[in-house]
Design a protein around this nucleic acid. Structure first.
Lengths: 202, 202
DNA sequence: TTCGCCGGAATGAACGTTCATTCCGCAAAT
DNA sequence: ATTTGCGGAATGAACGTTCATTCCGGCGAA
């Protein structure tokens, strides 16, 4: 939808170069942070010339923002897998939390990128988003907590506080796992998410 | 203890210039982030020439790291105020959590600086620290959790996970407060910290 | 041959840092 | 009391580096 949408010339000469650049940017930024990811480094990782990147992205900001959106999509998509829509609320909550945590630790690059993005000038405008963004799928999380409030299953606290109690620890343990402080196995994941539920339930 | 210690001439011409520079750096970095805090901006905020900063700090890295340590000290000091060393463990835990949360929201610059520092090249070497650093006062927090483990008062989970459950939400709500998503009053602070305890207690 | 994408050298802006110079306040000299 | 000289802190223009972005010669496809 950008400079060049989908004309035949592109399809012939640039099959997946755009994706390759995004992949390279993710790799470099996750590993080195924004400070260590000049265009030249991303270009090299992608195996293209520096100038080529500007054929696919208007500028670096756009590249970085589009990468964010893509990761966001990826995570949100995963949350719906095997979602037990008909189960009891605590079951749905722990399923969601565990799915999120599992994704964060099995896709460390995604997680590291999100962390970088959040604390950077780029992320300022997205501050209002939760870990998954305010739109779309965070409705899934919010809906869950609102239902818990309405049905008096969770503590009577502002939604924002419930969010912090429910997902703050998940982000924190994901970070610890990423940094090698701990190896989260399925048992620890389940226990952690359960403890989060203990924190918010009435 | 630096270039010029405490001779009479200094006391006349440079009373608290070093502190003024630190204060200015905190202000600019907390407001604009590291990206928006070139030496020139810090110098202007401090009301000194750019070169002057290098009379007090070897380079920008040192300035930024010393500021971090100072903030760290400031927070740690506050945790011991009115600490009920003899009370029951849950009481001590909630006192500590509330004191931490109170400081983070009433010193937004400190908090914003810590967040900036943590996700930046400067913070990389401090990654192993908890919010308060690994040494000194984080022993207070760790000791509390270890005691809880030994006395079977908290869930049998790795210390790292307990840390995440206990302090993850506190950081998260502090951030929300900072961004204006919520106004934390004393009641909400107490309720939040209590919920954290509910998350880790057996 | 022609067309247009590709690469990477070129460009200019922004930054941290340095250094020659200025400025200030004290004290010795008168 | 006034003047003069001096030490060293303060200054900010200048430098070298790094980076995002641009530009153009070359080369492969048709």
């Amino acid at each position: 939808m950008n400079v060049h949408s989908a004309n035949i010339g592109d399809l012939v000469t640039a099959p997946g170069k755009r994706e390759e650049i995004l992949r390279a940017a993710l790799e470099v930024i996750a590993a080195q942070g924004f400070h260590g990811a000049p265009i030249a480094a991303i270009a090299e990782q992608a195996g293209v010339g520096a100038g080529t990147i500007y054929r696919y992205f208007e500028n670096k900001d756009v590249l970085i923002r589009e990468l964010f959106q893509e990761i966001r999509q990826r995570i949100c998509a995963g949350l719906w897998e095997d979602y037990p829509a008909e189960a009891e609320l605590p079951v749905r909550f722990t399923h969601l939390g565990a799915a999120l945590l599992r994704h964060l630790i099995s896709n460390p690059r995604d997680f590291q990128y999100l962390e970088q993005f959040h604390n950077s000038p780029y992320g300022v405008e997205f501050r209002r988003d939760r870990i998954l963004g305010k739109g779309e799928d965070s409705d899934l999380c919010r809906g869950l907590l609102e239902e818990g409030l309405a049905r008096q299953l969770v503590k009577e606290l502002p939604l924002v506080v419930l969010f912090a109690l429910a997902f703050g620890p998940i982000i924190a343990v994901a970070r610890d796992h990423n940094l090698g402080f701990i190896e989260l196995d399925e048992g620890l994941i389940k226990a952690t998410v359960q403890a989060c539920w203990d924190g918010i339930r009435k």
